[in-house]
Design a protein around this nucleic acid. Sequence first.
DNA 1: GGCGGTTGTAACAAAACTGTCGCGGATCGG
DNA 2: CCGATCCGCGACAGTTTTGTTACAACCGCC
Lengths: 228, 228
Amino acid sequence: MQRAKILIVEDDPPLAELLHWHISQAGFDVIATADGEEALLLIEEERPDLVILDWMIESLSGIEVCRRIRRMGEMASLPVIMLTARSAEDDRLRGLETGADDYVTKPFSPAELVLRVKAVLRRTRPAVSGEMLKVGSITMDTSGYHVARDGEPVQLGPTEYRILRYLMERPGRVLSRMQLLDGVWGRDSDIEIRTVDVHIRRLRAAMNGDGKKDIIRTVRAAGYSLNP
Amino acid sequence: MQRAKILIVEDDPPLAELLHWHISQAGFDVIATADGEEALLLIEEERPDLVILDWMIESLSGIEVCRRIRRMGEMASLPVIMLTARSAEDDRLRGLETGADDYVTKPFSPAELVLRVKAVLRRTRPAVSGEMLKVGSITMDTSGYHVARDGEPVQLGPTEYRILRYLMERPGRVLSRMQLLDGVWGRDSDIEIRTVDVHIRRLRAAMNGDGKKDIIRTVRAAGYSLNP
DNA sequence: GGCGGTTGTAACAAAACTGTCGCGGATCGG
DNA sequence: CCGATCCGCGACAGTTTTGTTACAACCGCC
C-alpha cells in the first residue's frame, strides 16, 4: 500500500516536532514547514495527500493559505485539516467555509489528530487508506492488487493497474493525458503524451474482455474518464 | 442546492432514531423503515438519492435488499451504504460485491456516517459538488464533461462544449461574436467572425434535438445569448 | 545469456471536428 | 416596396485528434 504524504504547517517548533513524530509513527510520510508561503510551494512540488494547517502562523494566516489552496486548480481538492486555538463556533464556521475538510481545536491529543487524518483520507482518497475501491461493476482491492469486473477477476499489467486506480480514485472525472502522465508516471517523466493512449487501449482490452461495455470514455480534446 | 433524500433501513429503534436525527441535522430529507420489503417499496415510490442499510434486518437480510435494488432497473444505480457489525475483510468483500457503494462498521460515530453519506453523494451526484452549471433545463458537469437537457444527455463536440460553457457562465447576457471569439477561441486567433455562427448552429442542432425550444437567442446586430 | 512479459515510440488508418464559402431567406429603416 | 445588412443553412475539404498495430528496448528472474 502506497503511503500517504502529509504536509504539516506549524510554526511552533515543539508542537511541530510532536506532530511530525506522531504522524510519521502512524505510517505516513511527513513533510513540514513553519511558513505559509513555503507551504504553498511545497504543495506544488511535493503533491501531498493532505495538509495539517495551523490557523495562526506567521507569514500568512492559515485561513489565507487554505483559501489559496482552493484556488490552485489542480490541487484545489487537497484535503485540509485546520488546527485552531479556540473552539469558538465562529472560528469553526469560518474554517469550514474557507474549505477546510476538518478542524481540531487545541488542546488536542495527537491520537485524535491521527484519527481525523485517517478519516479524512478514507473519505477523500480511499486508495491510500487501504480500502476497497468500487466504481460501477469494477472492484479493486488496493492492498492485494486484485481487480475484478462483475466479480470476475481481471489480469492487469502494472501500468494498467495504476491508470485504473488513478481513474477509480476520480470516477467520472475527465482526466487529461497530462494529468494522467503526472499522476501515473510521475511529475517529471519525459514520456510521450500519446503513450497514454496506448496504455488506455491496453487497459480497455483487458477490462472489456468478453463483449462487455467499454468502461472508459474518451472525451475528444479533453482526455479520458471512467464510465459510471 | 436541492436537498438529497436519504432512506434509512434500520430495525433497532434507538439506533434508527439516532441516525434519523443526525442525517436530517446534516441537511438531508430522511425517510425510514425497519423492514426490508417496505424499503423496496419506498425506493420505488419515494425515489431517494441514497440508502443507508443495516446488514442485519428482519424480514429480508440487508444484503438481499441490496441485491434486489441492483435489479430494479431504473433505480439500480442508487447508492447504498451498508452498516455492518463485523469488520471482517470477508464481509467487506461480500458487501461491495453485492453492490454497496460504501460500508460503515459498527460501532461508528454518526459524524463519520454523515461524512460518508456526503462523500458518496459527491461521487455519484456531481450536482452536489459545486462543479455543476445549471441554466434553465440545461445542466453541465464541468468535471465530467457531461451536458444534459431535461435530464437527457446531449452529445457535443469540443468547440460546442466550450461555447455552451462560456454562455452558461454568463446566462442571459448577449455576447458579441467578437467576445465569443475571444472567450472561446482565444484572444489571438485569426478566425473568420462568421465561423461563430456556424458553431452556434451546430450547438443549436445538438441541443434542440427533439422539437424542443431553442435555447439560444439571436440578437440581431449584437450577438447571441442563452435563453432564460 | 535466454525468456516471458511489460513498456515506450513511431507510423499509419480511421474518425471526428473545424473553418470557410456561397446562397438565399429574414429583418430593418426608410 | 427597396436596398442593405444580417443571419441560417448545407456542403466540403482540410486539420486535428484518436485508435490500432507493430517493434525494439527493457526488466526481473531463472
